[in-house]
């Protein structure tokens, strides 16, 4: 079943005519994803063409969703306009909004998060690589690729991957695929301090998903989302989890690339998170090179 999205899920792209949005829209179409509509205000009525694909463009998300039957929106809109784009998708009643945009002001996200209370929409991101549910074809073709992850490194299978970081997710996925183990769904929740979906939210979904048999959870310094997820997993998670935390060598008080990756006031250190993982029975990878191997040992597959 996978989580959040399946190969049949219909997607619309907000910001499809921009440089970034169009590049990744093409890659998703090549991957076989059901990318059915685009939204760029002022360009409604035009279409986005790629090979044999002709994706209609609309002025508003509401209209795009209505005409195309899309239930998921992915956002490539520049930071000053991204919060508005997310709110537009919530207003249009999308099931899921995936915000790829990096650099959205934190105060904008604080308001978006509060505006979302009580809505049925789930937000993933912002500042995230997106979601991949691999397909059955060669190099996982035919899957649902939302965002900027390289599709071909995936393989259909039974490991769920959740991470704040894009390239560390790819690293974990590639290690799994190279060892013959596929993924149910890979979710990048993003590196910002205020995001829509937490490690814990995704863990719960993986726990309930019959197709997911084991989980890799990747975290980094800053905040306490990893600790909260670990605390829950210790009691409720039925599936083996391997974890990795980045940033053990990061100096305190400095933001390490991601807006949320900062140790402040002695809180959010890698040591605390690793200790929380261990206390919860999560197998901790000592280095990012052994994320898959650590899981496979813990899972009894190696």
């Amino acid at each position: 079943m996978a989580i959040l999205v399946t190969p049949e899920t219909r997607i619309l792209v907000q910001g499809i005519t921009g440089d970034f949005g169009s590049r990744h829209a093409r890659l998703s179409l090549d991957y076989g994803t059901q990318l059915v509509a685009g939204v760029t205000p002022g360009k409604g009525g035009q279409s986005f063409e790629h090979g044999t694909h002709k994706v209609p463009i609309y002025d508003t998300v509401a209209n795009a969703a209505k005409q195309s039957g899309a239930t998921v929106s992915v956002i490539f809109v520049p930071p000053p306009f991204a919060a508005d784009a997310i709110l537009e998708s919530i207003d249009a009643g999308m099931d899921l909004v995936v915000a790829i945009t990096e650099g959205i002001p934190v105060n904008d996200m604080v308001r978006v998060k509060h505006a979302m209370r009580g809505s049925k929409t789930r937000l993933i991101g912002p500042n995230c690589p997106g979601i991949v549910t691999p397909g059955e074809g060669a190099q996982s073709h035919g899957g649902c690729r939302i965002g900027i992850a390289p599709g071909y490194i995936h393989k259909k299978g039974n490991v769920g991957v959740v991470s704040r970081s894009g390239t560390l997710t790819y690293e974990a996925v590639w290690q799994l695929t190279s060892r013959g183990f596929g993924q149910s769904t890979c979710v990048g929740i993003g590196g910002d301090p205020v995001n829509g979906t937490s490690h814990l939210d995704v863990l719960k979904m993986f726990n309930d998903d019959p197709e997911t048999e084991a989980i890799i959870m990747i975290g980094e310094i800053g905040g306490d989302a990893e600790e909260l997820a670990a605390e829950w997993a210790a009691v409720h998670c039925k599936k083996p989890i391997a974890g990795f935390i980045a940033g053990a060598t990061a100096p305190p008080g400095r933001r390490m690339g991601h807006a949320g990756a900062i140790v402040s006031g002695g809180k959010g250190t890698a040591a605390d998170k690793i200790a929380a993982f261990k206390a919860a029975g999560i197998a901790v990878a000592e280095t990012p090179s052994v994320m898959a191997d650590t899981l496979l040992r813990h899972w009894g597959k190696a």
Binding site: S163, R164, S165, G166, T167, L168, T169, E171, G191, I218, E220, I221, F244, A246, G247, A248, T249, A250, M256, G257, H258, A261, A270, E286, T287, P288, S289
Partner: peptide
């Protein structure tokens, strides 16, 4: 990538 960059620092120390 920021996450991989942090992890690379960590593995150098490791």
């Amino acid at each position: 990538g920021a996450g991989l960059a942090m992890a690379t620092m960590d593995i150098i120390q490791y």
